[in-house]
């Protein structure tokens, strides 16, 4: 266990965390603004990967696939919010069950449309291979994932802190009733957030598709990890999602490398610890 080992493991953990951030930030925002436990979030991730594949097969362009997939799934999310979730009003239980129903529908639809093959998104050649620094092989794609998550995180942060819509969102997270009271159209905010969440998850799906693959069942495989991030980081907080992603990415990586026997405990133990000490998560507010 030399320094090289620790460095490469830390790097791997951070890059995995970067991917988790794309997935979990949307989940966290949806939770914060709408108080919805969205069990269809993994489906958005998977659909993103599939739509991207279709774009790549028809146009051959990976670059084009990213926005097309993310926007397509954002529209799906938007419609789902407008047509189905909104009419329910605030009712956590029925909303969560509705998202479960959609998760099943999406899963079957994806199987019917794209088949059951284990597929893979091939990134452009420039992102393949690895950079060698002092004998450390750093895969370019992992560096790209970190960069991508950093960019998206920064954009989200700027949106939240510096724009009008960001202020409206923050107000809604803090106190939806009060926000309505001062004239914020919280229904609009919710719609925007749900679509944004779907957008981010699908983006994660495209980026992650080259790294995790695209296959039926990925939706439910990735979902618990996203929830671990949100629970640790704090529900509804962007900073929380970022910190949570890093913690989970690193805990998962080092846990598996150092204590392979109990690898899931290293993922769930921090979660339980946080639940016991601060049920709202590190950065969540009551």
């Amino acid at each position: 266990m030399d320094a090289q080992f620790w460095l490469i493991q830390a790097f791997n953990g951070i890059s995995y965390g970067a991917l988790l951030f794309l997935l979990a930030s949307g989940l966290s925002l949806i939770f914060g603004v709408m108080r919805i436990v969205n069990l269809a979030h993994g489906s958005f991730f998977l659909l993103g990967g599939y739509v991207a594949l279709t774009v790549i097969w028809t146009t051959g362009s990976w670059l084009l696939a990213i926005p097309v997939a993310a926007l397509t799934v954002a529209v799906v999310g938007l419609l789902m919010e407008r047509i189905f979730l909104r009419p329910l009003g605030f009712d956590p239980l029925r909303q969560v069950l509705l998202t479960v129903g959609f998760a099943y529908l999406f899963q079957q639809a994806a199987l019917d449309i794209w088949g059951g093959d284990n597929l893979d998104i091939t990134p452009p050649d420039i992102l393949k291979g690895s950079i060698v620094i002092e004998g450390l092989h750093l895969p370019v794609y992992r560096i790209f994932m970190i960069g991508m998550a950093g960019t998206i995180g920064l954009a989200l942060w700027v949106t939240m802190e510096k724009t009008r819509i960001g202020a409206m969102i923050r107000a809604t997270v803090d106190d939806a009733q009060m926000a309505r009271g001062v004239g914020i159209d919280t229904s609009r905010v919710s719609m925007f957030i749900f679509a944004l969440g779907a957008f981010l998850a699908a983006l994660g799906g495209v980026i992650g598709g080259a790294f995790l693959g695209v296959y039926p069942g990925l939706d439910f495989a990735i979902l618990p990890i996203a929830f671990a991030v949100v629970i640790i980081g704090g529900m509804g907080s962007l900073t929380g999602a970022a910190v949570g992603s890093l913690i989970v990415g690193l805990a998962d990586n080092f846990g598996k490398a150092l204590f392979p026997e109990v690898s899931y405990f290293t993922l769930y133990a921090p979660m339980v610890l946080i639940l016991a000490l601060k049920p709202t998560g590190l950065f969540g507010r009551e």
């Binding site: 108080r35 436990v37 618990p224 671990a228 629970i231 529900m235 690898s263 049920p279």
Partner: peptide
């Protein structure tokens, strides 16, 4: 219950989900 009961509504959903996952993790690993 020590973890979950004091939480209300949607937090309760989330915490029970997490606890359920812990039991699954034990069974699986």
């Amino acid at each position: 219950g020590l973890f979950a009961v004091h939480a209300g509504g949607v937090y309760f959903l989330m915490i029970t989900l997490a606890l359920g996952m812990c039991v699954w993790g034990l069974a699986y690993r």
